[in-house]
Design a protein around this nucleic acid. Sequence first.
RNA 1: UCCGGCUUAGCUCAGCGGUAGAGCAAUCGGCUGUUAACCGAUUGGUCGCCUGUUCGAAUCAGGCAGCCGGAGCCA
Length: 462
Amino acid sequence: MLKRTKIVSLINADQTIDQVLVKGWVRTRRDSKDFSFIEINDGSCLKNIQVIANNNLANYEEVKKLTTGSSVAITGALVESKGGNQKYEIVAQEVEIYSLAPDDYPLQKKKHTDEYLRTIAHLRPRTNKYGAAFRVRSELSFAIHKFFNDRGFRYVHTPIITGSDCEGAGEMFQVTTLDLNNVPKLPNGEVDYSQDFFGKAAHLTVSGQLNGEMYALGLGDIYTFGPTFRAENSNTTRHAAEFWMIEPEMAFADIYDDMDLAEDMVRFCVKHVMEKCADDLALFDKFVEPGLIAKLQNIVDNGFARITYAEAIEIMQKSGHNFEYKPEFGIDMQTEHERYLAETHFKRPVIVRDYPKEIKAFYMRLNDDGRTVAAMDVLVPGIGEMIGGSQREERYDVLVQKINEMGMKEEDYSWYLDSRKYGSVPHAGFGLGFERMMMLVTGIANIRDVIPFPRTPNSINF
RNA sequence: UCCGGCUUAGCUCAGCGGUAGAGCAAUCGGCUGUUAACCGAUUGGUCGCCUGUUCGAAUCAGGCAGCCGGAGCCA
């Protein structure tokens, strides 16, 4: 019994083969006088394999009815092509038709808009662009695991459902089994969560960082890579309600180790995808973001610029550029500022560190100047903030003071404070939005197009 | 959530006060080792929804909805 061969193997074959079996979907069919050209794609690579179906096939009349989107299994000989656009083609000995796609198949042999393809997200993986995007997504995921694994980082699975409503990274989705039409109430009118599944209010995680820190302080170097949820009503090209985040955490590390790790990781992943997905990236370079490959090569070769927040403000003040919001020490940087730094001034990714403490989270380590914290953001051309990280405040007293200063409840963080109470060490980490790195690598400008089935406000189809 | 734009054939769009068009797709036919093949014919639309203005509305006005872009929030 002949085994199926994937098209990627046939495209890259080093010699002809007497008999092969390929299975896939018809992309296009062109009839000739005595035979028909059928292009088959099986998703194993961007390229199609061209099949010659001669009119001596037993079911040739059926073969001539093959439409775009139909599924077939073809047995035949892999031979050198007489045409100019491909090295090999298959001369069919047998064409088995699994299923004929009716004439209302929504994907045509032409370019569709991304907006239209979003309305048929269940079928878009059958297009060149989205096939390429999701092959890259897979390869980029693997690159992340490979990078950390090679460096001895342990992969930690932090919880998706969390009982702490104060992870401090945004609005949360509530998780409940209570009957929303008949919610149990306490005498004071508040919801009686003691009757809920967990006996208290529960939410979907917005970050695994606090949990990740606990494991770094036991295993040394760890990372998480999993889904994250934000109930923010954000309607932009770079926000989704459900996205994947990578959060490494290193014990015995400071902000400089953290920046090195972030830069090394991005450069490793970009290089990996450039090597493994060359055809797919070539498609993006041609149709999605002209200059993409040169941009990525620049990232691999030249690395990131590094400045402090104070220097960033100074650069912008001296730039003569007319900002809508005047850059001054103390402001939270706006999109226009981030874009100016990465796109106009440095023209490459830039790491900004040492932000004013007032605009950053409680767990970031207070610098010796007393007014900035050891936080760093990686700003990327075209995307903005791709990574946010920091050295964590390891001093118990300072951390408690920060918690109180920010009006948070100390008792809510008792387990987190334990890590500073017992054997506290300097440590650092960051969070990287996986989809934003996908946007960087593919040039795809909308986050909805780098997630298989994106979830955004008012949109949860498929 | 705020600001702006868009919504006409299956898809991409034109038409912008006088009663609906093109290209592509689809269907049929022709031609051809073709490359999103090519040539010809045919089919296909309550012009997003509701109200109003007008002799007359796809076209003007108001409301609603959906989508897109920008901003905020962030990853």
